[in-house]
C-alpha cells in the first residue's frame, strides 16, 4: 500500500494516503484494522475524487482529513472517528453514524445524517433534501439551509439549521427536536412550532457550542419545531395523513 508515514508530533503519527494511487479497499481495510490505542491517529486523504464509502465503518478514535469532494456515504456508520471533508459531500454523508464527529466544509447532498443514532454532523454549507431523514439520536448542525422533507420521520436527536428550511420540514416527525433560524417554507404533517423554553435554549446552546458556534449566533433568533404527536395512534380523523 502507498501509505507514507510521518510523525505528527505528540498527537501520534500522521498517515498520508493518495487515493489516486491507493485503492479505496486498501484504505478502508487499513482503517478497520486500527487498534483502539493506535498511534496513527491522523490520516490525510488526497484525491478522493468523489469516491463512495470513503472512511465508512470506522470504530476507532482517529482523525481523518479528506482533501476534496467525496461521493455517497462518506463516514457511513461511523463510530468514534473524527472525519473532516474539505469539500462537498455526496448522498448520505455520515448515514447511520453512531458516535464521533463528521464535518463537511462544503455543501452536502441529500439524506445527510440519515438514520444516524449518535455523534455530531456539522455542515458548513447547505444540505440538500431529506437532511436528517429517520434520524435516531444524532445531532446535526447546518450552517446554511436544508432542502425539502428534512427530518422526515425523524425519531430522536436534534437538527439545527442556521439558514432556511425547505418544504415539509419534519413530516411525520417523532421525537427529534428541530431548531431553525431562518424561514421554513412549510411544515410537514404533524410538525408544529413549539415554545422555546429555557431547557430548549440550553439544549440548542450545547449543540451550537459543540459545533464551535457558541457566541457567534443569537439563540433568540431560532424557532423550535417538534411533533404534534397526533399521528401516534391510528385514528379515523387522521386518515388524510396516512
Amino acid at each position: 500500500m502507498n501509505l507514507s508515514l510521518k510523525s505528527a508530533g505528540s498527537t501520534g503519527e500522521e498517515t498520508f494516503v493518495d487515493l489516486a494511487h491507493t485503492p479505496l479497499r486498501e484504505l478502508n481495510g487499513a482503517l478497520h484494522k486500527l487498534a483502539a490505542d493506535t498511534n496513527r491517529t491522523l490520516w490525510k486523504i488526497a484525491n478522493p475524487a468523489g469516491r463512495h464509502a470513503i472512511a465508512a465503518g470506522l470504530d476507532v478514535p482517529v482523525t481523518i482529513e479528506i482533501d476534496g469532494p467525496v461521493g455517497y456515504y462518506c463516514a457511513g456508520m461511523n463510530k468514534q472517528a473524527r472525519i473532516i471533508v474539505h469539500g462537498n459531500a455526496g448522498v448520505g454523508v455520515a448515514e447511520n453514524m453512531m458516535s464521533g464527529l463528521v464535518e463537511v466544509k462544503g455543501d452536502a447532498s441529500q439524506a445527510a445524517g440519515a438514520t444516524a443514532h449518535g455523534g455530531l454532523l456539522v455542515i458548513d454549507g447547505n444540505a440538500s433534501a431529506r437532511c436528517g431523514i429517520s434520524m435516531k439520536g444524532i445531532d446535526i448542525v447546518v450552517k446554511g439551509g436544508v432542502g425539502h422533507m428534512s427530518a422526515f420521520m425523524a425519531q430522536a436527536g436534534t437538527l439545527t439549521v442556521l439558514g432556511d428550511a425547505g418544504e415539509a420540514l419534519g413530516d411525520s416527525l417523532y421525537e427529534a427536536k428541530l431548531f431553525v433560524r431562518g424561514s421554513v417554507a412549510s411544515l410537514g404533517a404533524d410538525c408544529v412550532e413549539k415554545e422555546m423554553r429555557e431547557e430548549h435554549k440550553a439544549l440548542l446552546a450545547a449543540k451550537l457550542e459543540a459545533a464551535g458556534l457558541l457566541g457567534e449566533v443569537d439563540i433568540s433568533e431560532f424557532r423550535r419545531y417538534g411533533s404534534a404527536r397526533t399521528l401516534y395512534h391510528f385514528h379515523v380523523d387522521n386518515v388524510s395523513s396516512y
Partner: peptide, 30 residues
Amino acid sequence: IDQRSACRHPDWTGPDDLEIKIEELREITD
C-alpha cells in the same frame, strides 16, 4: 405508539443508488 415503518429506503432510490449502497455495506464489512 402505532408505528408505521418507512416503505422506501431513506438514502437511496433505484438500482444505481443501490449499487453504491451495497458497495458501502461491503466496505463496512470488509
